[in-house]
Design a protein around this nucleic acid. Structure first.
Lengths: 243, 243
DNA sequence: ACGACAAATCTTGCATACAAGACAGACTAG
DNA sequence: CTAGTCTGTCTTGTATGCAAGATTTGTCGT
C-alpha cells in the first residue's frame, strides 16, 4: 500500500486499486471503505474518493449506506443467482459466437492454464482465486470486444465476493479441470461444446455454494481473533467438526 | 422540462432524465451537458450533477473532455461494432437460456408489438425509436435478471445514439417484422430459432448503418438553421448543390 | 481584408467547509 | 444491576470557493 500513497497517475487508480483488491481476494465483502481513510491513503481529498465510489457503485461493486459509509457489496443469495445466470448467458453466448481460435489466442489460454497449475502446485490460494476469475476475462479478451471484457470483469469481481461469502471450500482442481476442458473444446473448434461446458462449469461452481449462509457481520473480528471462519449454521452441522 | 425543475425525488433523477432522453432520441449524440445548466434545471448544485455524470460516464453514455465539458457520447465506428457484437452475444445467449415463455410474458410481448404497430400507424417516429429499443429490454425483463436488464438498457441507449449518427433512414417496418418473427419463435418454444433470428435482426440493423459517416460537429447549428441534415461528404459532394 | 495575438469569459478539477444524521459510550434513574 | 436517555464523535451529503485550462472574441498590425 505504500506505493499507492505516493501521488502517481492517481486518475482512476482508486477504482482500479479497489477492483484489483477484490479480484485478488485481498478485500473481503462487507469491508468498509471510509472516504477519509481512502482519501489519505491516496493523498487526495474526499471529493475524488466519492467520485470513485460513485463509479464503483454503478458497477455493482460497492454500496453506500446513508450517513453510515461505503461498503464492498455483500451480494444476497438472489443477487448471487443473478450474477451466475448473467455469466452463463454472456459466456455461453460469447463462446458460441466465436468461429475460430487464433494461434496467439491459443497460446494465451495455454499460458493461463499453466499459471493455474503453477499456483495449484505452489498452493498459493490468493493467486489462484485471482487466476480462476481471470480465466473468464481472458476468454472475453479473445473476442476483442472491450465492452464484454468490461462487463465480465465486473461480474467476475462480484463472483469472487460471492465465493467469499457462500463458498465453504474451494475446489481449485475441479475448476481448473473445467477450464482445461473448455480450452480443449475451443482448440477443437467446437465452440458449441465449449459453451455447454462453460455453462456446466458455472453450474458446478454455483452448486458448490451454500446460499443459505448469511453474510457474517462479525467476519473481521472473528478473523482477527483466529476463530473458526463461521459456524456452519445448518441443523446437523455441529456433527461435522473439523478437528 | 418544467416538471423537472421542481425538486422532486431528485435522487437519481438526473441519470434517469438523461438516459430516458437518449432512449427517446430527444437528446442527440454529442450534446453538450453543461454542469451549470443541468444544475440549475434540477435546482441542485454542480456536485450532484458531477456525480450523475460520473455514473453515466461509467455506463458509457457520456464522456468528459477535460476542462471543456461533458458530452453525450458519439460512438466511433469501432465502438458501434462492439456494441452490436455485444448485443448479439448477450441477446442470443439470453434467448437460448430460456426454456419456456410464461403466459404473462407472452402477453407483455404482444402488448409491446401492438404498441409498435400503433406508433408505426401514427407515424410517431420518436415514440417508435423508443419502442424499438425497448423491445430488447422487454426480452431481458422476461429473464427476470436485473443485471442483464441493466446491461441491455445501457447498450440500447448506445445503440440509439449510434443510429442517430450512422443510420440514414429508419426502416421501422423491417425492424418491427424482425421483432414479430422473434416473438413468434418464442411462442413456439423454439428459443434456438429465436436466438438466430435475433442475431439476424441485429445484423440487419447493423448492415443498414453507414459507418463511414463521421459525426457532424455542426449538427445542432445546422438543424437550427433548417439546413439539410448533412452533406453526403462523398468526393463529388460539391456538385450536389441543393438550391 | 486577413491573420495573429491577447485578454476576457466560461468550463471543469479539486479541495474545503459546514450541515445532518447515525452510532457509541457514559451517565442516570429505577 | 439493568434499562433508558442523552450527549459527543464520527460519518456521509451537499454546497461553495478558488484555480487551471480551453475557447472565443476583440483588437491590432501588416
Amino acid at each position: 500500500m505504500q506505493d499507492l500513497s505516493s501521488q502517481e497517475s492517481v486518475q482512476t487508480s482508486i477504482d482500479e486499486a479497489v477492483v484489483s483488491g477484490i479480484l485478488s481476494a485481498r478485500i473481503r465483502p462487507g469491508t468498509r471503505l471510509s472516504e477519509n481513510e481512502v482519501a489519505s491513503l491516496f493523498n487526495v481529498s474526499r471529493t475524488r474518493v466519492r467520485e470513485a465510489m460513485m463509479r464503483l457503485e454503478q458497477r455493482g461493486i460497492v454500496k453506500v449506506s446513508p450517513r453510515r459509509g461505503w461498503f464492498v457489496v455483500e451480494p444476497s443469495a438472489e443477487e448471487a443467482i443473478s450474477v451466475y445466470a448473467a455469466r452463463r448467458v454472456i459466456e455461453a453466448g460469447l463462446l458460441r459466437s466465436m468461429d475460430r481460435l487464433t494461434e496467439s489466442g491459443c497460446e494465451k489460454l495455454q499460458a493461463h492454464l499453466a499459471e493455474e497449475e503453477a499456483a495449484i502446485a505452489a498452493g498459493d490460494r490468493q493467486r489462484l482465486t485471482c487466476l480462476m476469475g481471470d480465466f473468464h476475462i481472458r476468454i472475453a479478451e479473445l473476442s476483442g470486444n472491450p465492452i464484454l471484457v468490461e462487463i465480465l470483469r465486473d461480474l467476475t469481481a462480484r463472483t469472487i465476493l460471492i465465493s467469499l461469502i457462500y463458498q465453504s471450500d474451494f475446489h481449485a482442481m475441479q475448476s481448473h479441470l473445467g477450464h482445461c476442458r473448455i480450452v480443449a473444446s475451443m482448440e477443437e473448434g467446437d465452440f458449441e461444446k465449449a459453451a455447454a461446458l462453460a455453462v456446466e462449469h458455472l453450474d458446478e461452481v454455483e452448486t458448490g455454494l451454500d446460499l443459505t449462509r448469511r453474510p457474517d457481520p462479525l467476519a473481521d473480528l472473528r478473523r482477527s481473533l483466529s476463530l473458526p471462519p463461521q459456524v456452519p449454521a445448518s441443523s446437523n452441522a455441529s456433527r461435522k467438526t473439523k478437528t
